[in-house]
Design a protein around this nucleic acid. Structure first.
Lengths: 235, 235
DNA sequence: ATAAAAAACTGATAAATATCGTGTTATGGG
DNA sequence: CCCATAACACGATATTTATCAGTTTTTTAT
């Protein structure tokens, strides 16, 4: 079951497009010409905040979290990148160091693209930079939306919103049936929603009691997306 | 006194560049060819969330807030645009409706640029879209940074950070001396930092007691930026 | 299969922050 | 200049959320 028609997730600007959708076949071939695919285990770091970027990464499979670590070691997850998305290109384009770190949420496969190759495609394909502008502008909207969520929403609303967004990201994995299984730890959920891990557990218990979801150990299975949307308090 | 050397505000990615810096003289002339400058009083709305954009706005003078309004009427300020900045171009580039509203924080003068003119410059000047990509990528970094601030910082840290950022934006106004006067209401401050207005007042009182700032009615005068930075708990 | 480690979970308490009620001071229009 | 209105201010209280100090369950590695 898609969210379209139930929760206007696109209209509310919580999702971004796979970069592959904005690439023509030629551009894509050019981009991955000197590719080197690498596998990452769950928890492996792809790049660290402050490092100088040498290129960008295309997520071939798996899920990557982008996050910033606090002065007291607290982690805030900024974004979860899914299969088909590019990561690290903002820093390359802005000619800055990485403003955040990236690591694998689950076993993932990434394709490294040297920044020279990336710039070559940008320079040689005028259409590409326009589509990139469009994609970046949309991503900007998504992030701005997130700021308002943090400023205006309660802990339970933020968790509900995080679950809705994650459900979209996880729905293409595995199971073909209605129930979508989120393979993510309580701690990562807490670091996405910006709340304490213990409260994630308590809130998940509430959601479970309301029939929104089921849990089996670490597994979270979203059962009733409509109720979840109601919990998020959107309209 | 500039922040450089005291607080590495650029390194911490809290500021964005004026778009004028990335425009060549020709591009600039082309952009404002069919300009129509308009004056806005404090509080006047420039555009509203959900509207279809017809073009972009260049801030000639004054300050514009971009914000989202809650289901219960609470306002979250996403960004304060200063003289020299463009607003509304993300929506135009993404071909979306405005994701947020914009209104004047003080009497301002804006120059409207029809979206056709904007696209013409993008298409005709390959350098421009590249510089725009760079600017957008940097803005993205700034927003991502803000998300981590909301997720990781206490109310007083968020207020201190808001004051530091605003100080940079207000320092070119009026007075040439050291003390920078922020012409912004407690409510707007609250809506930037994402805290209750009463708490802004209480925290300002604390900051005053610590010698960080002075208040004269609605006026806020930053006296000691070093202490303010210490309050923000950055390093 | 089993031990060790990690993650999930729980209840009590503390801390942070919002809300409410009310008084006071600024500020802008007539 | 004065009045009306909005903004500022402040204490008391309620609410929300985090922290702490554990126990239990699940997962991982051998």
């Amino acid at each position: 079951m898609s969210l379209s028609g139930i929760f206007p997730i696109d209209r509310w600007n919580f999702t971004t497009q796979s970069i592959l959708n904005i690439l023509s076949e030629e551009d894509y071939q050019l981009l991955i010409a000197s590719q080197s695919e690498q596998r990452y285990q769950k928890g492996d770091v792809i790049f660290r905040e402050g490092a100088v970027p040498a290129g960008i990464f295309l997520v071939r499979s798996g899920k990557i979290k982008k996050y910033k670590v606090d002065h007291i070691g607290k982690e805030q997850i900024i974004y979860v990148a899914n299969q088909g998305e590019l990561i690290g290109y903002h820093a390359v384009l802005a000619e800055e160091r990485y403003p955040d770190s990236a690591s694998a949420l689950e076993a993932s496969s990434l394709c490294f693209i040297p920044k020279e190759d990336f710039f070559e495609v940008i320079h040689s394909s005028p259409g590409f930079s326009q589509r990139l502008l469009k994609a970046l502008s949309h991503e900007f909207t998504v992030l701005a939306n997130n700021i308002s969520v943090f400023g205006q929403r309660t802990a339970s609303e933020r968790l509900a919103i995080a679950l809705i967004v994650l459900r979209e990201k996880y729905k293409d994995d595995g199971r073909a049936d209605e129930e979508i299984f989120l393979n993510i730890s309580r701690t990562d959920l807490a670091n996405i929603a910006g709340i304490a891990q213990e409260n994630v557990i308590r809130l998940l218990k509430e959601f479970k009691a309301e029939g929104i979801l089921e849990t089996e150990g670490r597994k979270i299975i979203i059962k009733d997306i409509k109720l979840l949307v109601k919990r998020a308090n959107y309209r």
